[in-house]
Nucleic acid binder design. Structure first.
Length: 366
DNA sequence: CAGTCGTGGGG
DNA sequence: TCCCCAAGACT
């Protein structure tokens, strides 16, 4: 049996820890666009974008989003299609739809002022325990915990907490730790500093303990267990889905696109007509014609298979056979089907997988 | 709780 | 190439 210490929070010099952490953050924090002011709306947008997404990825999206939707009123009045287009490529698109729904609620119910109580802010769509604490502390200076993956990693090492951070129930342990450790003079910087430390120093695989401003407070550093913490069980591997998609053109050079359902994977994004196929079949052109005809009520002619696309999601992989074809006749108007020109297609939000399809088509077309 | 929900970068 | 991951929330 491994001898481990646990819950050493009683032995932590809380004031010393706060001082060392905050001094480091004031000197070393990155110059990030959402740190220019404390506008709760901008803090909110940044926190939603940063969910499961790297800082470097978010930066250009944040700039464009705030330029296009500078205030809560602007985002409230925007078409969802525009919002999704601004989110295109960022992933987890329900974040964008939930953000707009929540912003509309703030606009109507709170007169455009982001609420500053845990109860009210947590009731907003897309605002979970982490985001609630982040907005309350960063925008309003309220000493609430904001426990993300960084904070769990950092505190698991400092306090030698061996609970599995993959389990939802573990977050409560870290929240209660933060409540004991948090600076009431500057909860905003305290929370941001814990995350910044996790991002820059106390990294997952090779933490830079010799550069760490709080290593003197760190149990894992003393015991040499920084590479064993945090404990995190791994996820199981995903399944594969075999699909066929087609770029279908009518005799006016217009392209047929399909709007995905409002729930589930890539909800409300547009795509080229696509259907799941049985790998057991040899998917020849005649069979693909039937697939697209029945699925989309369109009389089509498939010319050739132009390529294959593999796209990996968190929990599944798409293998897409891509076809090129012509539209003979659309049976009737459907709101989720549209014929668009080469110019118009740029206005619609597509998932990255179908951006690949479009790029491949344009290349093959010369 | 366990599965769903994206994407691009890095070891 | 493969796998893990990165400032989580929802069902």
């Amino acid at each position: 049996m491994k001898e481990i210490s646990q819950n050493t929070i009683e032995s932590v010099d809380i004031n010393g820890f706060q001082d060392d952490l905050l001094r480091w953050f004031e000197a070393e924090q990155r110059d990030l666009p959402w740190r220019k002011d404390k506008d709760p709306y901008k803090v909110w947008v940044s926190e939603i974008m940063l969910q499961q997404t790297r800082v470097d990825t978010v930066i250009p999206y944040f700039h464009r989003f705030i330029e296009q939707f500078p205030t809560i009123k602007d985002l409230s009045e925007a078409d969802e299609e525009k919002v999704l287009k601004a989110w295109e490529g960022l992933g987890y698109y329900s974040r964008a739809r939930n953000l707009q729904a929540a912003v509309r609620e703030v606009h109507e119910k709170y007169g455009g002022r982001v609420p500053d109580t845990p109860k009210e802010i947590s009731s907003l769509k897309g605002v979970g325990p982490y985001t609630a604490g982040a907005i309350l502390s960063i925008a309003y200076g309220i000493p609430e915990p904001a426990v993300d993956g960084n904070v769990m990693r950092v505190l698991s090492r400092i306090l030698s907490i061996w609970d599995d951070i993959a389990k939802p129930s573990s977050r409560k342990i870290f929240e209660s730790s933060v409540r004991k450790l948090i600076s009431h003079e500057n909860p905003s910087y305290f929370n941001q500093a814990l995350m910044e430390l996790g991002a820059l120093i106390c990294t997952p695989t090779s933490p830079s303990c010799l550069l760490c401003p709080v290593r003197e407070h760190c149990t894992a550093f003393y015991e040499g267990t920084q590479h064993e913490l945090p404990v995190k069980t791994k996820t199981k591997k995903q399944r594969n889905v075999q699909l066929a998609a087609a770029v279908l053109i009518d005799d006016h050079e217009r392209i047929l696109i399909h709007k995905r359902p409002g729930k589930g994977l890539l909800a409300n994004l547009w795509e080229f007509p696509m259907a799941e196929i049985n790998i057991a079949y040899v998917s020849d052109k005649d069979q693909m014609k039937d697939v697209f005809s029945t699925q989309f009520g369109a009389k089509v002619e498939i010319q050739e298979m132009t390529g294959q696309i593999e796209h990996v999601f968190s929990h599944l992989t798409w293998n897409i056979n891509v076809y090129k074809g012509k539209i003979i006749k659309l049976e009737k108007e459907k709101s989720d089907l549209k014929l668009v020109s080469l110019e118009e297609i740029k206005e619609f939000p597509f998932p990255v997988s179908h951006q690949k399809i479009w790029k491949q088509y344009l290349d093959s077309r010369g």
